[in-house]
Computed example of a mutant assay.
Amino acid sequence: MRIDAAEAALRIRTIADIHEDPRGGPVRLIINGRHRKPTGRYHSVKASRSMPWEDRAERMYFWLCEADTAVASYLAQPHGLEIKVAGRKKPLLYYPDIRRDMADGRVEIREIKSRAGKKDLRDPDYELKLHLAAEIYERLGWDFAVLHQAEDIERPRQRFATAQEIQRRRRVRVGTRDRFALIDAIEREGGIAPLGAIVDVLGSEPLGRAKAYAAIVRRIVHVPLDQRLAADTPVSLLRGGLDASRAGLRRRG
């Protein structure tokens, strides 16, 4: 029987229990059987952990999170929602795909849908879970959205291509000397320096470019993801990265 989502939302007896991993990691390991099986793991430098991905759309979204300096950290399968609804014997269980903790303090919860996953949205029980989850997150002050692979992740195409290229170099080491070379180069240019100059400061091609991209992932510097990575792409310092680097210099001194 199809349940009207709006009516059900008004009849929730228990808003929800949120279950999190006490170690701060993903709340469940997807197993074989009726559950979807993970097809890989992604090592995030930004989040300082390895996270499972269940289809390519999730992995692609990790790329965007890794390269976007507005994202301070993120976590796959961050918690489980146990929602008790009047008239149902069993609670509804919902596991969102990703939580993003933003640099400005906001929390974003994202459900990721691949091209094949769109059919899930036609299931009445699943539709109800999403509706109730959205109500709960709104009360918590968290932003919730369902993102689709083709429309919201792979597009705009330039943003996706730039993020993909940046995250490929995420594991490259950025040492203390590199950090202060970045600060000096950008401050000498008045706060914004061209990417080509930054690459030269860090050691020329290809190592300098790899370090520059890794510094973006580490939120030391920022580049606009909607622009192509070229010699004239503007690079600016992030306040947090600048403060952390200067604090490190004082400790060394």
Rank of each mutant, 00 (worst) to 15 (best):
A185M: 06
G191N: 06
L195C: 03
K84I: 07
R169E: 05
Y74M: 04
Y61C: 03
I31C: 12
R155F: 02
G240S: 10
G24W: 04
A9E: 06
E54N: 11
D104Y: 07
L81R: 00
I15F: 06
D143H: 04
P224C: 04
S50L: 13
L147V: 01
T162G: 05
F160L: 01
V223G: 03
I216F: 11
L132W: 01
P22K: 03
D55I: 12
R34V: 09
H131W: 10
E108M: 01
R36I: 14
V223C: 08
E58M: 05
R100Q: 08
Y137S: 12
I109P: 03
A9H: 02
E189W: 08
A72H: 09
G80F: 04
A8K: 10
K118C: 13
V221G: 07
A210M: 13
R252F: 12
D125Y: 14
R250F: 12
S204K: 15
R56I: 11
H131Q: 11
A72C: 06
G196I: 00
S48Q: 15
S204G: 14
R59Y: 03
R209L: 14
E54S: 12
K129F: 12
I112L: 05
E151M: 05
D178I: 01
K211V: 10
S114M: 11
I12R: 05
N32M: 08
E66P: 03
R219C: 06
A163T: 00
G24T: 01
R250T: 11
R246Y: 10
P124E: 09
A215E: 12
L242H: 05
A161S: 01
L238Q: 04
I192K: 07
S48F: 11
Q227R: 05
L132P: 13
I109R: 00
R228P: 03
K129M: 11
P224S: 06
V221D: 08
R188Y: 08
P91L: 14
K119I: 14
A163Q: 01
A230F: 00
H79E: 02
D226T: 06
I109Q: 01
I192H: 05
Y213F: 13
R168G: 06
E58L: 04
H131T: 11
P206Y: 15
A197E: 08
I216S: 08
G196S: 03
A231S: 10
G33W: 12
Y61R: 02
L75P: 04
L225E: 02
K46G: 13
L237A: 01
P156D: 09
D232R: 09
D68P: 00
I109E: 02
A6T: 09
R2T: 13
A133F: 08
S204T: 15
I98L: 11
E165W: 09
L75V: 00
R218F: 08
V221M: 08
Q77H: 00
P224G: 01
A247R: 04
A86F: 10
I112M: 08
P22V: 05
H19P: 05
A72P: 02
E127D: 10
R155L: 01
E154R: 07
G80L: 02
K119F: 14
E189S: 09
D125R: 14
L140A: 13
I98C: 07
A134C: 14
S236T: 10
E205M: 15
I15C: 02
R110W: 06
A197L: 10
